[in-house]
Amino acid sequence: MIFEVFRQERKGQPLQHAGTVDAPDERFAEIYAREQYGRRQESVALWLVPREAVSEIGEFPDEFEMKYRRVDGYSIKARLREARERAGTLEAAPGAGAAE
């Protein structure tokens, strides 16, 4: 049986995939994982998950490129400048005077 091993380095950190062990059963998987991923105090927790128990999602289609949900969907520079001009605060704005 193949077990995926996840390892937590310090409390509060995410459990990250570390590697795999091949073991005849769960008991042996525990012993192997402890030996290979924890014997040097490099982990505070290990998760062992039988490979078959993992359901993977690997595709994330984005046909409509919904940029409005992301920061790169917005470019406010020109409008901000115009707004500051109208308000007469352009001179006082952070970075004023410096080349834009």
């Binding site: 193949i2 590697g19 795999t20 062990v21 091949d22 192997y32 030996e35 290979q36 014997r39």
Partner: peptide
């Protein structure tokens, strides 16, 4: 020896 075990596992996969 532990390194060998980790590495052979990668080869097995």
């Amino acid at each position: 020896v532990g390194h060998a075990q980790l590495i052979y596992r990668v080869v097995e996969d």
